[in-house]
Write a protein that binds this DNA or RNA. Structure first.
Lengths: 168, 168
DNA sequence: TTTTGTCTATCTAACGTTAGATAGATTGGC
DNA sequence: GCCAATCTATCTAACGTTAGATAGACAAAA
């Protein structure tokens, strides 16, 4: 993957997490990266493809980070909480898949499938950690909701409060 | 409030809940209502004003519905859960303020203030019901997250699972 | 007669996308 | 080793469309 492609994905991820799918343009991304909009189209022929690629990379990285925590002996629920917290504190932004899921009604099928994958993989890894399906859903919902609420209230301690019931 | 204004607010609410702030246009709303885009501008001179008005009405109605439940003797947490559930089942869409909060970074100040008000009033009514601040945040976060997750997974039972820990 | 609400018509700016061209790297045949 | 062909990544320029917003005409109601 070239530097430009990485930079495009980085810029698109940041903008989607701040303003949603309809909240960014190819010209925005191009300006962020330092190329022209047509060059962004060269790598990602359509906006849907770009958003889908961003969601896929985000999910892969997220799940990998969780698995790394679990491999080190961290409880699976605590692992998910830590990676969510890191995403909030590092970037001060919403979860990418949460931001996209909030407008899932009008989302292109290709993108929705990637966002769905994030939640389904989440449920799957939590179940592999020994949780029932309902409990797994509860963990993901609480974390997404805590992140959402912390963002709008502009107070990261809200994330801690919102997710505190998950701690064993 | 005239019929047209009500119809405009209704259409805008539905579209924001489906696609977010950047996911609708004056022409969309006008077509939904059956007037011209300039007529929508007559009632709401700018898009920000329209979205802010939608959020204010949504919050007022939501809190009113919760208070009505509480007045009938329903536990305050269960009241919030019921009104969230009703919003999901009736409209099959995300919470309006949740959808806006997910993209809060790029939101106009006027709109963000209205969305913030939803969450602050939520915490306030829950605290009046006897909850600690952290517990109130936990309830709102769980409900928003459960709604979000149910929407992307296209399965309303996910809302029940996601919010089931709140039941006393 | 003024106000209210809607219309037609229009504006500028931006949208996603495409065409055509180009400079530079890579590759394959001689 | 050299030349021709191809590929990669970018550019400028423009496409048709839509965005939010505005001015002014017009009709109905107060």
């Amino acid at each position: 993957m070239t530097d430009t492609v990485t930079a495009i994905l980085d810029a698109a991820e940041e903008r989607i997490r701040g303003a949603g799918y309809h909240g960014f343009s190819f010209r925005d991304i191009a300006a962020d990266v330092g190329v022209k909009a047509s060059s962004v189209h060269y790598h990602f022929p359509a906006k849907e493809k770009l958003a889908a690629a961003v969601a896929r990379r985000y999910t892969d990285r997220f799940v990998e980070a969780v698995n790394a925590q679990v491999a080190e002996g961290t409880d699976v629920v605590e692992a998910w909480r830590r990676v969510f917290r890191a995403a909030l504190q590092r970037d001060g932004r919403m979860c990418l898949c949460g931001a996209l899921a909030a407008t899932s009604h009008e989302l292109a099928e290709e993108i929705r499938a990637e966002v769905k994958r994030f939640f389904e993989l989440g449920i799957e890894t939590l179940r592999q950690g020994g949780l029932e399906r309902a409990a797994a859903i509860r963990v993901l919902a609480a974390l997404e909701g805590a992140m959402l609420t912390a963002n709008i209230l502009e107070d990261q301690s809200v994330f801690e409060a919102g997710s505190s019931a998950l701690v064993a």
